[in-house]
Nucleic acid binder design. Structure first.
Lengths: 243, 243
DNA sequence: GCGCGCACTTGTCTTCTACTTGTATCATGT
DNA sequence: ACATGATACAAGTAGAAGACAAGTGCGCGC
């Protein structure tokens, strides 16, 4: 693959900024220093930096220097970031508490989606800063989950643990009233509004391998999607009526 | 049937591009390099590349190079239908009832987004098969909306009426409990869960031109998004915590 | 404390080279 | 007639190197 030099540099800088190598508000190395480090001229380095500024990732002031933009978080959202990434970027401690780890007969809905009679079901609560913000249930065919232990699931992400090449996913977001179980797990009143997301993940061959349901308290979460091109309608994209 | 050389090359390039050998937005080898690789003249290579451009697969800029045009986000968006489209496709009669058409001082939130003191506010209810399924409020700067009439808004879409080149949009989806106004308009109990979508539409220069709020009853609507590529996390994409 | 200058930074410009696409012309072989 | 090859030139971009202006921060001398 071919790319212009300034594109490579912009990519590398973006990676380092997003990885938090330069804390928010802190100065980046000067153009001259970057020029030396990347063995590229100042013009090239500036092009890369200006590309990052166009994305709102960094800013500059004459005579002062380049610094990480005060609000790099919005940028993460534009790229469809995940909450984990957001939390990590802002330094909020996050935690996952496993409530339940069991192999059982698949409920009808799960069997219909995954096409497996016996499944691994993991239920957990995600916490940010000690407060629960998501109640998660993941189903996975026994064939894929049989090698997993409760400790593994607690420590790592399903995506890392499963030994399959993943394909795409379909995500469905709806609103609902909190069930008793939701209310208990999320410490909110029963019946209060929640966002309910169901995600079906497929492997590279299009076979569904994971079914995940996430329930978020409405007052703490919202779904953001950037549409780079205008649609022909004023209505929200992707919404559909259900029966 | 004998395939011309440039057709063979176009086929091979198409295969490689579609296989993801060159990521979106990245440069292809130069015409000279391809000419050497395929042992064909630059004219022939160009014919092949122009055939791919006709299909919208690649683009070129003089002095810059050929690059893959396929924007993965755009592909995702291509699959996002709107409710209107869904209704039209299924033959359900839909209707828009204007509740309110007025120029007024912008509330703080609207002023902050649109940067205008006086705005046009249009409130309406969308109905499918005679039943309300969305309560919509649209704000638009007076400068843009001053030429509009209530009848125009009732008959056409805002996108058609506004004489601006539209850029992208940001869509935020959250859950909430139905307010009294929501409940009355949508014929649902007050406090029942609703999906609340806010969309900020910008013109080609990035200036916000429209702020739209859509409220849907949760039991009738859900949001679907296809993710062609797996994410590094199991969590729903685009979700964020709000404060 | 105050002003000044020094070192350093970004902003902007020029000049030059190398490379790429855009376009045209002419020759050649099937 | 048409695809292809070879070649040439125009126009645009990337990049290196350098110069200068303008803004910032800091320490020094007063």
């Amino acid at each position: 693959m071919r790319a212009h030099r300034y594109q490579q540099i912009a990519e590398d800088l973006r990676r380092r900024v997003e990885a938090g190598e330069f804390a928010a508000g802190r100065l980046l190395p000067s153009e001259a220093a970057l020029s030396g480090r990347y063995k590229a001229s100042r013009v090239t380095v500036r092009k890369a930096l200006e590309a990052l500024r166009a994305d709102g990732l960094v800013e500059s002031r004459q005579g002062f220097g380049w610094f990480v933009a005060a609000d790099p978080l919005r940028q993460t959202l534009g790229r469809l970031g995940t909450i984990e990434g957001q939390l990590a970027a802002s330094g909020v401690p996050s935690e996952r508490r496993i409530l339940d780890f069991a192999f059982l007969r698949a409920p009808a809905r799960v069997r219909a989606v995954l096409g497996a009679d016996t499944v691994l079901r993991v239920r957990r609560v995600n916490l940010a800063d000690g407060e629960p913000f998501a109640r998660v249930t993941v189903w996975c065919p026994e064939a894929l989950g049989s090698g997993l232990s409760r400790d593994q699931v607690a420590a790592s992400s399903f995506y890392d643990l499963l030994d399959v090449r993943l394909g795409g996913a379909t995500q469905t977001i709806g609103a609902a009233a909190a069930s008793a179980a939701d209310a208990a797990a999320l410490e909110i009143p029963e019946g209060s509004p929640v966002l309910r997301c169901e995600r079906i993940t497929e492997d590279a061959d299009g076979r569904p391998v994971l079914l995940a349901e996430h329930v978020f308290p409405a007052h703490r979460t919202e779904f953001v999607v950037d549409l780079p091109h205008p649609e022909a309608s004023i209505s929200p994209s992707g919404l559909r009526l259900v029966e």
